[in-house]
Simulated scan of single mutants.
Amino acid sequence: MTQQTRAIAVFDIDGVVRDVSASYRRAIADTVEYFTAGAYRPTQADIDRLKSEGIWNNDWEASQELVYRHFETRGKGRSQLDLDYPTLVAYFQSLYQGTDPQNWTGYICDETLLVQPTYLEQLSAAGIPWGFFSGATRDEAKYVLERLGVVSPALIAMEDAPGKPDPTGLLAVVHQLEVQHQLPATTPVLYAGDTVADMYTVIKAAALQPQRQWIGVGILPPHVQAISDRCQNYTETLKSAGAAIVFGNVEELTPAQIQALLPV
């Protein structure tokens, strides 16, 4: 790839690099079920509907919101609930990470990787710098990236920036890559993510840095791909939120495809 067509590729992690349908999303469902005393367990479709609002990228906050909405449908206001957020977070993490902070045994251990190390190697060989912007905690993001053999990547995680769709974290990782690879501030950026919040993040970044091209790349998470109607609806949702193109797997975003998405 020539200097004229060079671009920066940034990736979300959850639903893009790893399948979280049986980990983060399972933890959401379990947490909501626990804090509603077994009265409500959200389905994957329920969680998708919440996340389609574009502001519930944080799964702890999403869990809390689903609990609140459950009780609201039964005429109980939020101020009436004795729902302690740190307690909810601790319960969620005990499921996702496990109860031993030094030796994780929770749902995170069952995640399937959606990317092979050779994919990132292909991007590097084509002269495409890459990094990650994720709403996961730094330790959780590093855990999965180390499984890919990625050590000390350009990474902005939960602790490093406000949650999506705030673009601060995306701009930060792009800046890291620009400095590392000595790229101009006009270098196009592609951000691959699986949620509406990811696409909104790209739009907000473009508003702050209009001098470069920003391209939102939608990725269909595995849990929506088994049913064609659901897959189509999810695709349309991502496109409506700003995705220029939607793939079933991020490895379809090849160097050739990246070049095709860039201006002539």
Rank of each mutant, 00 (worst) to 15 (best):
T2N: 10
A7W: 02
A7S: 10
A7V: 07
A7L: 05
I13S: 02
D14F: 00
V16L: 02
V20K: 05
S21F: 09
S21N: 03
A22V: 04
A22I: 05
E33P: 12
A37P: 13
G38K: 11
Y40M: 06
Y40N: 02
P42Q: 04
Q44F: 04
A45K: 05
D48Q: 10
D48R: 09
R49T: 04
L50R: 00
K51L: 07
E53N: 13
G54N: 10
W56I: 03
N57Y: 10
D59H: 03
W60P: 07
S63I: 03
V67G: 10
R69E: 05
E72I: 01
G77H: 12
R78K: 12
D84W: 07
Y85A: 12
T87C: 08
A90G: 05
L95I: 01
Y96H: 04
D100L: 01
P101K: 02
T105Q: 13
Y107H: 09
I108R: 01
C109Y: 12
D110Y: 03
E111P: 00
L113Y: 00
L123A: 01
S124D: 13
G127F: 07
G127H: 14
P129F: 07
W130G: 02
W130H: 10
G131K: 04
F133W: 09
G135L: 11
A136Q: 13
T137V: 06
A141T: 02
A141S: 15
K142V: 15
E146Y: 15
V151D: 15
P153I: 14
A154F: 14
I156V: 15
I156L: 10
A157H: 03
K164C: 05
K164E: 14
T168L: 11
G169I: 02
L171R: 11
Q176H: 09
L177K: 00
V179S: 01
L183M: 00
A185T: 15
T186Y: 02
T187V: 10
L190T: 13
Y191R: 06
A192P: 00
A192C: 05
T195H: 11
T195S: 14
Y200L: 12
L208Y: 12
R212N: 01
G216E: 09
G216C: 10
G218N: 04
H223W: 08
A226T: 15
S228Y: 14
Y234F: 06
T235P: 00
E236R: 11
L238C: 05
L238Y: 04
A243V: 07
A243N: 08
A244R: 12
A244Q: 12
I245P: 02
V246E: 11
F247K: 02
Q259H: 06
Q259S: 03
A260E: 05
L261A: 06
V264H: 12
